[in-house]
């Protein structure tokens, strides 16, 4: 297992000249290993999207450094580094460059000077990976939000990146679109072991990750397994997030006097506990 990307004491302020202003990102450290899925959660304005911009050199930190494949990110290796990272943004409409689906997928390939024959193969392959092959010649305004985001993922995959960053990529989608995108990401992880960082305030999405980074006011508030983060309980609500459904319900059940072994993160665990604590006697 090797390190794909890491942040070392990264601090960033949008207004560094104003002394009393709060840093958008304040002394953040973390590393992502090959094959991992990390979710960065936090309420709107907690600094999670700024982190995304720091990771691919749209912004540079005032202090600390971002390392990509072990090398510090700087002006010289910026474009090389960007080709290692695919990124999908929040608004599906505002990142669709091509006139049709296949043109859009090819955009990053064109930018990186990939020869034509190679492009054709990669475009077909990437669209197959996100299950959008039937839409090759569709124009963007005839696609649903979820479909557009899948095309954006294909556009990233075509470059064969080491890392896929989803910057609130599901927050503007309807439930079905959200499901499509998350299923696509899960399938890609199973298939090619893609490394993923997803920035989100959707807890169900965060639960799919291996590790969760919980941001608050620009600082890393907590980091751990989803189960560890979600057992913070009411602290999550206090800091603008929600509780997982199963956790809320197990708490309410215990308040109602239903015997349970503990509070649960997933529905499955809760159902199992209900069974063992109450029926299986």
């Amino acid at each position: 297992m090797s390190e794909i990307l890491s942040l070392h004491q990264v601090t960033f302020s949008y207004t560094p000249e104003v002394a009393e202003s709060r840093n958008a990102v304040d002394d953040v450290n973390f590393a992502i290993q090959e094959g991992e899925w990390i979710a960065i959660v936090g309420h709107n304005g907690s600094g999670k999207s700024t982190i995304a911009k720091l990771m691919n050199g749209l912004l540079f930190p005032q202090q600390g450094e971002v390392r990509i494949l072990g090398k510090p990110l700087n002006e010289d290796n910026l474009w090389q580094s960007r080709s290692q990272m695919g990124m999908v943004f929040q608004n599906p409409d505002n990142q669709f460059v091509g006139a049709t689906v296949q043109d859009d997928v090819a955009f990053a390939l064109e930018n990186n000077g990939i020869p034509f024959e190679e492009m054709v193969t990669r475009v077909h392959q990437a669209l197959a990976q996100v299950n959008m092959s039937d839409f090759m010649n569709h124009e963007p305004h005839h696609l649903s939000g979820g479909q557009k985001q899948r095309v954006a993922i294909a556009g990233a995959l075509a470059l064969k990146p080491k890392l896929l960053i989803l910057d609130e990529a599901t927050s503007m989608l309807d439930p079905q679109g959200r499901m499509e995108v998350l299923q696509t990401v899960q399938a890609l992880r199973a298939e090619i072991g893609l490394t993923v960082i997803s920035i989100t305030h959707d807890l169900e999405e965060a639960m799919l990750a291996n590790r969760v980074l919980f941001m608050n006011d620009g600082k890393k508030f907590a980091e751990g397994l989803p189960s560890e983060i979600f057992s913070l309980g009411d602290k999550l609500v206090e800091l603008g997030l929600d509780l997982p459904f199963a956790w809320k319900l197990s708490k309410l059940l215990q308040q109602e006097g239903v015997p349970l072994l503990g509070q649960h993160i997933t529905e499955e665990e809760l159902v199992n506990d209900l069974w063992t604590s109450n029926f299986n006697k």
Binding site: L249, E267, V271, L274
Partner: peptide, 29 residues
């Protein structure tokens, strides 16, 4: 959907379809 899972477990339906977590917790209890 969760209520349906619980009903399967109990092997009988609850007396009503619950719409909030509070309602469902009370009903199961």
């Amino acid at each position: 959907r969760f209520q349906q899972k619980v009903e399967q477990l109990m092997n009988k339906p609850l007396s009503k379809v619950c719409l909030t977590e509070e309602e469902l917790a009370a009903e199961i209890a």
